[in-house]
Design a protein around this nucleic acid. Structure first.
Length: 480
RNA sequence: CGGGAAGUGGCUCAGUCUGGUAGAGCACCUGGUUCGGGACCAGGGGGUCGCAGGUUCAAAUCCUGUCUUCCCGACCA
């Protein structure tokens, strides 16, 4: 056993919070900044975000959206135009009061989200039904003055994308909100390998200014829920607040229907807490900037120059290009390198030593299972790519099985409270749908309704807490 | 924002109670031997102790303020 103390990762069973921070530190995903609640996203972390961006941006464009950029600063009065919106966001906004050495006539808010500035522009851009739909997305940073922050999960400033669309009809806006939620589901499940539940938020939990909010909800390895993305049907609220109208085919002036939707760097937090283990980060192959690393085993009995050149050949033969690295460092032992790449979550390790050279083989080691495979060098490309796909699938299946294991159907309050405390998880329960009832449960148990799942079956029942009739089960959980 | 804990070379920490001018392990640099799960030997470089004041002949150490981080709570992507 090594005496080295650096990069130690606390076991998640012992201290889940510390484990999460240790994984981030060991994989060098992020670091703290001098400003409270802000973080520096380091290259390893930013690479994850870049791949999320790339994947999502393609999907946005495939569904007819275009990118634009709106300013960071928003006039104070814009926030006051939509009553619920100002109530929801004003308290957590940072405000710029001075510029150029003097006090500003009107304070400027640093955007916590961009509905207001965007709809003030849409007013200028929309006048006819021929201008609709308007499907714009922006990649941006936003600022929310949160009381308590956590790397990636809740930081004062964070990166996200926010889509803002304008439509001629309510139905079209509704379809858009649902379509984008589906885009998020695909991203989460197929790229991040995070199983999610799609559903509707309750009145209490919906976005400030929305008619209704849809979300994807994931379960972390401490059995708590994490909202991983949201899509809002905004109705005509912002159109009315900013007086955005169009003339329909009949020449009638009408308010525009709207949606907005977003995912943020929080997804990286979700990724960490879904797949990583006590060895460190685990990244699904489709998201990994480095999908595989070749570790040559050097020794005094072998020609190290030959070993390195063979290692490079092996790397080339996989066809992974930039996504495969050869760890050529001669001052580090193989064991050290194994740990190093495991902490960084590289999905596949390829070992090449003297014995392998002799047998014309390599050793493949999976990050997800730790399994070692001895495979011939011939046909390595197919083997490696097949294995990466298998790892991707396995991570998803494993996470889904885990979530299902901690999802319970509960029919009485006593069981509800007991399960919530131990072991925690998703509790499928009947609820009356009333806000007061929901608030009382949260106050007493810390559990919130994560969503009303789309696939919840019609089923007659009674609210677990007040006995009023219910037709569907909702998901309760403690959430981040 | 309330309660608790903590900030000392890159990292983990000792030293603080009982002031006397900073130490260990790992990391780093050089040379050599190693290398199939965190190698070893020898030599070497680097910190004024989060920041700002105060007390004192003298402050990492005592006092005041402040900033940041972690945990618990109220607020949230």
């Amino acid at each position: 056993m090594s005496k080295k103390q650096d990069n130690k990762i606390s076991p998640m069973e012992q201290d889940y919070n510390q484990w999460y921070l240790d994984v981030i530190q060991a994989a060098q995903l992020a670091d703290y900044s001098p400003v409270k609640g802000c973080m520096v996203i380091r290259p390893n972390g930013y690479a994850l975000w870049e791949n999320i961006q790339r994947t999502l941006d393609e999907m946005f464009k495939d569904t007819g959206h275009v990118n634009a950029y709106f300013p960071l600063l928003i006039p104070e009065n814009f926030f006051q135009k939509e009553a619920e919106h100002v109530e929801g966001f004003a308290p957590e906004c940072a405000v710029v009061t001075h510029g150029g050495g003097s006090k500003l006539e009107e304070p400027l808010y640093i955007r916590p989200t961009s509905e207001t500035i965007i709809w003030s522009m849409y007013r200028k851009w929309i006048s006819s039904h021929r201008d609709l739909p308007l499907l714009i997305n922006q990649w941006a940073n936003v600022l929310r003055w949160e009381m308590r922050t956590r790397l990636f999960l809740r930081t004062t400033e964070f990166l996200w994308q926010e889509g803002h669309t304008a439509h001629a009809t309510e139905k079209e806006a509704e379809q858009e909100a649902l379509r984008m939620l589906e885009v998020y589901r695909k991203l989460a499940e197929e790229t991040l390998a995070i199983p999610v539940i799609c559903g509707t938020k309750t009145e209490k939990e919906k976005f400030a200014g929305a008619e209704h909010t849809y979300s994807i909800e994931a379960m972390m390895q401490d059995h708590r829920a994490l909202q991983a993305g949201t899509s809002h049907h905004l109705g005509q609220n912002f159109a009315k607040a900013f007086d955005v109208t169009f003339q329909d085919e009949q020449g009638q002036r009408q308010f525009v229907w709207a949606t907005s939707w977003g995912v943020s760097t929080r997804l990286i937090g979700a990724l960490i807490m879904t797949h990583s283990d006590n060895k460190g980060l685990v990244v699904p192959p489709r998201l990994a900037a480095t999908k595989a690393v070749v570790v040559p085993i050097l020794s005094k009995n072998a020609d190290s120059g030959l070993m390195l050149s063979e290692a490079r050949k092996i790397a080339d033969s996989t066809g992974l290009g930039r996504a495969i690295k050869v760890d050529e460092r001669e001052n580090l032992s193989p064991g050290w390198k194994f740990h190093h790449w495991e902490q960084r979550g590289v999905p596949l390790r390829i070992e090449l030593g003297p014995r392998d050279l002799e047998n014309h083989q390599v050793v493949l080691v999976r990050r997800d299972t730790g399994e070692k495979l001895f495979v011939p060098q011939d046909g390595l490309k197919d083997k490696v790519n097949g294995l990466l796909e298998e790892i991707q699938q396995n991570l998803f299946n494993r996470a889904k099985a885990y979530r299902d294991e901690y999802t319970y159907v509960v029919d009485d309050e006593e069981t509800f409270r007991a399960k919530l405390e131990d072991p925690g998880g998703f509790l499928l329960a009947h609820h009356c749908g009333e806000r007061e009832c929901e608030e009382r449960i949260q106050a007493e148990t810390k559990a919130t309704i994560r969503c009303i799942p789309f696939d919840a079956e019609q089923e007659e029942g009674k609210c677990l807490f007040c006995g009023k009739p219910s037709h569907k089960r909702v998901i309760f959980a403690k959430a981040y």
